[in-house]
Amino acid sequence: MGSGRARLQVADLAYTYEGRTPTRALDGVTVEVGDDEFLAIVGPVGCGKTTFVRIVAGFLPPTRGTALCDGRPVAGPSPERGYVFQEEAIFPWMTVRQNLEFGLLAKGVPAPAREPIVGELLGLIGLQGYERAYPAELSTGMSKMVEVARVLATDPTLLLLDEPFGPLDAQTRARMQEALHAVWAHRRRTVVLVTHDVEEALWLADRIVVFSPRPGRVRAEVRVDLPRPRTLETRLAPAFTALKRVVWRELGLGEGSRA
């Protein structure tokens, strides 16, 4: 898992937010993500992890360094790199179906061809029967899953998830992680997940990259060799706890209570 050629090659990436007091968000980040690999990026608040995925998505041009997706440099946003936002980005005036169809519409896929794709995605996120509902009628967690499915409709080679379950409560998060895991197991692809939640990263990812505080640099890489499919038992296994210790240590936490 996680082997094979690199889908995403990021080399020496740096980003500085201009302004009265320029802020260096990233400084010399080099990361490679293999084909079908699930990579998680964790780091303290403000470490530039969102800046990192936004550059990979093409929303921000890097100040220095390069980002190559399938060997080609990233130039602007593209459906090749599906992006799920931290904020709520589901279109509230569209029904679930219209949201799911949007990328296909942009690609010019005719209605008969859109039908089965939307049907499959609805099944994948367990929202059959809700296709005519408006997002206001869904829970926050479910509309996030619609956003994930919306991005999958056009079959991106890379899936970028920026704190997708950030504002959710712990139980809903866990449920959404399971839903995401199921979707990913069904439709394998390269994923970059940005999160501040170490458990989320461990439970979902093949590998974790730990960022240092601002300016963000790669502080450590942790391979997550937990068996799949991952379950509740995975969360409770000693190996999981051991990895958790490693990641927390790399984040510079856990040494504070020494007597």
Binding site: A57, Y83, A89, F91, M94, G103, A106, K107
Partner: peptide, 24 residues
């Protein structure tokens, strides 16, 4: 965020105008 989402889903100007700007 809606405009960014539409851009990353590959929407052109006309689609953004019809399906995003107008309803919003």
């Amino acid at each position: 965020v809606y405009l960014d989402a539409a851009a990353s889903l590959g929407a052109g100007r006309v689609l953004v105008l019809r399906r995003l700007v107008l309803p919003a």
